[in-house]
């Protein structure tokens, strides 16, 4: 038995672990139609709660306020505006991003909700609150019915 003092924490005994967690997440009834509209038609849809007088976007099958089932689908204009944004300089590994990413919360007229997504074709110093933006979708043949079918939002013409 040694009485040597350990100064290097790397020498403390520890066991490296790795939790493999593979899942498939069911998109559900609302997600199925919401993503299919983006994939097949390049269109945004929400669902309307008549009782509360609001349209949820992204679409969902129930109203979180009155708990009604939502069945009325409403097309939503893909042109939105930047409610707020942030410029990210760090990636998920904690490393400095070579090219900063611009993330925004995008609101759409006449709906309750919005989307958090990236902004593109714009420099960080040019982004402004209230800026009108539109989505840039993947070419139709490459879309797979996912939120990543939207590549980013860009300043609207």
């Amino acid at each position: 038995m040694s009485l040597e003092k350990i100064r290097d924490p790397e020498r403390m005994r520890r066991w490296p672990g790795h939790m493999e967690t593979d899942y498939v997440y069911t998109v559900g009834l609302a997600g199925e139609r919401f993503f299919r509209e983006i994939k097949d038609n390049g269109k945004f849809y929400g669902t309307r709660c008549e009782k509360c007088g609001i349209t949820y976007f992204p679409a969902r099958t129930f109203c979180e306020r009155c708990l009604s089932e939502l069945k009325e689908w409403v097309e939503v204009s893909p042109r939105g505006y930047v409610e707020m944004y942030t410029i990210a300089y760090m990636d998920l590994e904690g490393n400095k991003l070579e090219k900063p990413e611009i993330w925004a919360f995008i609101r759409f007229e006449g709906v309750f909700g919005g989307l958090v997504h990236k902004l593109g074709e714009v420099k960080p110093e040019e982004v402004k609150i209230g800026m009108v933006v539109e989505p840039v979708l993947k070419p139709k043949e490459q879309r797979e019915g996912s939120i990543t079918d939207i590549l980013y939002f860009k300043p609207a013409k």
Partner: peptide, 29 residues
């Protein structure tokens, strides 16, 4: 980042502190 919705948010691969950046801007404004 595993705390993000796996369908609407997680595929975008954003850092969780993006949420803090967005909220800070909105709150201050």
């Amino acid at each position: 980042a595993f705390a993000f919705d796996p369908i609407i948010n997680r595929p975008l691969k954003m850092h969780p502190y993006v949420i803090a950046g967005l909220e800070m801007m909105k709150f201050l404004k």
